[in-house]
Design a protein around this nucleic acid. Structure first.
Length: 584
RNA sequence: GCGCCCGUAGCUCAGUAGGAUAGAGCACCAGAUUCCUAAUCUGGGGGUCACAAGUUCGAAUCUUGUCGGGCGCACCA
């Protein structure tokens, strides 16, 4: 249960009643009314700005709206106190029985706590990674991968039906370069002296083993034949070898896409003509000459008639080229086809995760989706900023040119997948992220992964200890859900329950905003509150979880921390991290 | 030159669809510690939310401009 939505619904019913009674005018807009946790705990448990928002359209003073609202809110079940504060906020304080009920709810839902149905089973397509199949993934890809995967899980948690998709850019010039690079390694594998890798080809060592593999499979079949004969088959071989590599990297992160869409095949089956034909029918494709870029002109710029898409009709700054000078499609053209393909597959909601260097591309793509779907489809592009790889505070130099850049795989092997996943979500997607190889494995407060895991481990430790005085059956979740929770009356215990009870609200908010990092931040806060309670037991032995001589209270407290464990597990599941029962 | 993103404590960052007195961690100072361990917790100092106007009951949040940083800028992907 999202308790804030719960009270919002009641509030709206009350507002309706006030309209019926003629206290509020008819036709008042309630859409923007918020029912939220207050920033400051001294303001109660639930706050709403209803009176403030309704004041203007109703032509009334906030206080005159707040008073009748409060009168009826007071009558609601679980509402202990009401307050009109500040310029007209209405604050509710809820009864303890309400909070005990929430804890019981956590124990019943277990790790599914926080799940909701607001997604209404609508299909959503989350496309992420989509790295070109020209080599292994690097750190930046890793961030997009984790972000996309966590977002997908988050959307699933709130009831969307999510497809995790990878767009394989297996057409275009970079594939030709790849094929040439592989052909060189293939010749080397067959014993030919080729000298250094020429500039312009991919120098990476990962192609050496692919070249060897190719030699093993086909022998010298493509060695001394003209390029026109080997280019196509070697391209295919190279793409599949590189995709295997990438899939392995992703698997090491625990990521598995459900759909891989090939650009080649899309083009082959006429996807581009189909999509552009559609736009053409709507008069959005034309032959024209673009204005030169303002300010500095590229040296080789010359006015040229091109085939253009009228993206400026949909909010883009200018129209965009869809056909290259040599007559082939631009990347944008195939991307239009790709998004049309997604839409035809039934996805009205599409989310793309891109690197920040593609920022200039967002407007034209959202324009294209609007045009293609006549505003029925919705594309949200999330840009992930750069990751700065550090070691003990010093930047790790990455030289792609030398082919010796640090791969994602090396990092995962070094610090573990769970650490990579969690750390990638400790920043907003559009903020740069420092990834410190030494820092992320440190066992201290400044390492959030450790900190959260440690809370979970401590809880499990308490249960191991309590096994001495309680039976398995007494410690089962089912029994704990029936524990005398009304014994939990300490302020710190109740505030821990309140924090847990806000979990569904956090999940929904994060899902709708497409911001999985909020989950990581919430978990850190929950861990903080738990560690606080833990230490309270050191100051004051009556606050310890296991109390000799008070089995009821002990069971209630075990139920409390069991709930915390479930919420942590629920959150870590979204992030894709396995909770640890022990950290020795 | 144009566009997109960003600018919050000494440092690294949150700030939940405009909400009440702007929050964490690190660092610094002072303390606590029988369950998982000083791997944790408590308290303290520290801010013109880059700057300036505007919108309104109310702005870190929205609009415009200025300054500063990152990314991109026809015919690459």
């Amino acid at each position: 249960m999202n308790l804030f939505n719960h009270f919002r619904e009641h509030l709206l019913i009350i507002i309706d009643a006030l309209v019926n009674d003629g206290i509020l005018p008819v036709g008042i807009d309630t859409a923007r009314i918020a029912v939220e946790p207050p920033r400051d705990h001294s303001h109660g448990d639930v706050t709403t700005n209803a009176a403030l928002l309704l004041a203007k359209p109703a032509c009334m003073l906030p206080i005159d709206i707040a008073l009748p609202l409060v009168k009826r809110l007071k009558a609601l079940e679980f509402v202990l106190e009401t307050e009109i504060a500040g310029p007209g906020f209405i604050n509710l304080t809820l009864d303890k029985t309400f909070w005990w009920g929430r804890l019981k709810e956590v124990l019943e839902a277990q790790v599914t706590y926080g799940a909701s149905v607001i997604g209404k089973k609508l299909p959503v397509n989350v496309e992420y990674v989509s790295a070109n199949p020209t080599g292994p993934l690097h750190v930046g890809h890793g961030r997009g991968a984790v972000f996309g995967d966590a977002l997908a899980s988050l959307l699933e948690k709130v009831g969307f039906v999510v497809t995790r998709e990878y767009y394989v850019n297996d057409a275009g010039a970079q594939i030709e370069t790849l094929a040439h690079s592989l052909h060189l390694r293939y010749r080397q594998a067959l014993g030919e002296e080729t000298g250094d890798v020429p500039v312009g080809l991919y120098p990476g060592e990962y192609l050496i083993s692919a070249g060897q593999k190719l030699a093993d499979v086909v022998g010298d079949k493509w060695k001394d034949v003209p390029e026109i004969q080997w280019l196509e088959p070697i391209s295919k071989f190279a793409i599949s070898a590189m995709m295997d590599l990438i899939r392995e990297d992703l698997a090491a992160l625990g990521i598995e896409h459900t759909v891989f869409t090939s650009e080649r095949e899309l083009v082959k089956k006429g996807g581009v003509e189909n999509a552009l034909g559609k736009l053409n029918d709507r008069g959005l494709i034309y032959e024209g000459v673009l204005n030169p870029p303002k300010g500095h002109k590229p040296d080789d710029w010359e006015p040229r008639e091109q085939t253009l898409f009228k993206s400026s009709d949909f909010g883009d700054d200018m129209d965009r080229t869809i056909k290259k000078y040599d007559g082939s499609w631009t990347y944008f053209a195939t991307d239009i086809a790709y998004h049309e393909d997604k839409y035809q597959r039934g996805f009205n909601k599409m989310i793309n995760i891109w690197g920040a260097d593609h920022g200039g591309y967002v407007k034209r793509m959202t324009s294209a989706v609007r045009a293609l779907t006549q505003d029925q489809g919705e594309l949200d592009v999330k840009l992930c900023q750069m990751v700065n790889l550090m070691d003990n505070g010093e930047a790790v130099k990455m030289s792609k040119r030398a082919g010796a850049f640090v791969t994602l795989r090396e990092i995962i092997d070094n610090v573990g997948k769970d650490v990579v996943r969690f750390i990638m979500l400790t920043r907003k997607n559009d903020a740069q992220l420092d990834f410190d190889l030494a820092g992320v494995t440190e066992q201290s407060r400044d390492n959030p992964v450790f900190y959260v895991q440690y809370a979970y481990a401590r809880i499990n430790s308490v249960f191991r200890h309590s096994a001495a005085s309680f039976t398995q059956g007494e410690l089962s979740v089912e029994t704990l859900a029936g524990a005398p929770l009304e014994r939990l009356r300490d302020k710190s215990e109740l505030s821990l329950i309140k924090l847990m009870a806000s979990w569904p609200h956090v999940v929904e908010g994060a899902a709708l905003a497409h911001e999985p990092h909020r989950i990581a931040f919430y978990l850190s806060e929950l861990a903080t509150q738990f560690h606080f309670l833990w230490n309270k037991g050191k100051d004051d032995s009556s606050m310890r979880f296991i109390l000799e001589g008070d089995r009821d209270l002990t069971l209630a407290r075990l139920a409390l921390i069991k709930g915390v464990a479930f919420v942590i597990a629920s959150g870590l599941q979204i992030i894709g991290v396995v909770p640890l029962k022990e950290m020795r």
